[in-house]
Design a protein around this nucleic acid. Sequence first.
DNA 1: ACCTGAACACCGTTCAAGT
DNA 2: ACCTGAACACCGTTCAAGT
Lengths: 222, 222
Amino acid sequence: MTKQSRMKTAGKRAAKAPRPYHHGDLRRALIAAATELLEREGAEALSFRAVARTAGVSQSAPYNHFTGKEDLLATVAEAGFRALGTAQAETAARASAGEDRLIALGLSYIGFAADHPQLYRLMFGVGVPDWHAYPQVSEAKQASFAPIRAALGEDFPSTNDATALEHAALAAWGLAHGLAMLRIEGSLARRDAPDKPLPEEAALRLFARGLTHALAGAAGKL
Amino acid sequence: MTKQSRMKTAGKRAAKAPRPYHHGDLRRALIAAATELLEREGAEALSFRAVARTAGVSQSAPYNHFTGKEDLLATVAEAGFRALGTAQAETAARASAGEDRLIALGLSYIGFAADHPQLYRLMFGVGVPDWHAYPQVSEAKQASFAPIRAALGEDFPSTNDATALEHAALAAWGLAHGLAMLRIEGSLARRDAPDKPLPEEAALRLFARGLTHALAGAAGKL
DNA sequence: ACCTGAACACCGTTCAAGT
DNA sequence: ACCTGAACACCGTTCAAGT
């Protein structure tokens, strides 16, 4: 119960000190604490009280900044979608046009999930029963997928057929998301040798190759 | 605290009576109660105590049949994979060979998820941190995907190339799983008209069409 | 405006005790 | 062998009270 000894250097937060520090940006501190605890314990093991404890406040303080636990998780998920969207946009800018760009985007998508498995799981429904209550999350989710959609429109011969583009986008999203989930859950084999490519890459390549042919055929027929 | 009035008709269980009935098959009753509660409340809201309550026993009785909540959930998930596998096998048997069979299997896969969303979510990692602790679940998972794998081997010109078949199987699994998840989470549009086909069907068709072409090309090259 | 601390109704799990 | 009931250490959330 010792009082804080320095007031001038209060800006430097001692991360583990359980002493109260209401520095006017508790909201941000709570989001940071939740993000950190999320990867360590998973969404279902993460408790609202532990987040408050990590931030050094009482169990009821967070209710001044979030309506409840779900609201905090939704905020973290939204940030995750924004980060994924940024990473995807950077990948799209770096890659050269063509099938390779689609494959690079797919690998980047799966890589994000592999790097932040618990965050990715949270983003896609784990722990939050109804995302419709958080429209900003839905919007960020759509935005995170925009680069793949754009690549399909620019790099594949389907631009003139909006319906075919829509179907291709759905297939690409489904494939990327499905491979990411399978990777996270451990359903996929680890890479045998460090130089051998991931099986996901071959699957993505097969998909991209087929898409070029199928869309070319569809353009002639539809 | 009244004693049970009839002993001869004890086989008929009054579903809501909170009186004790230890009829020798509590394990099955707990699985049934958990399965029922799962769809109604979701895996994260489902409590072990509520399962015991629904089965009419004390909160600690289930520990005689399961090591804990996670063990019960894993058992339910395993049963889910077996049911999915059966449904997939039936679909494969009914459909005629070719691209249509792959599409039918994909639609059946997504349909299962749409019919039992909470069960499907549980099966793919929600609520159970590490499936590796339950090898029977992993085995049932692999078995549930066998029909799609078999259809790829029989209906597509990749049978002689084991590697290409493996990649195609991974892509197909990823696509089916990804579309199922997106459907469950509400990321996909509801069908506008009851006669119009689901967008998933068009995406699956695009994938199957492309796979035929890509594998034919690969067979000549590799 | 923001935070604390007590309180409530829940959890999962353990364990002595009953039959 | 199987079940009960009390107990423990947790939850999420509410609310009066403090500053």
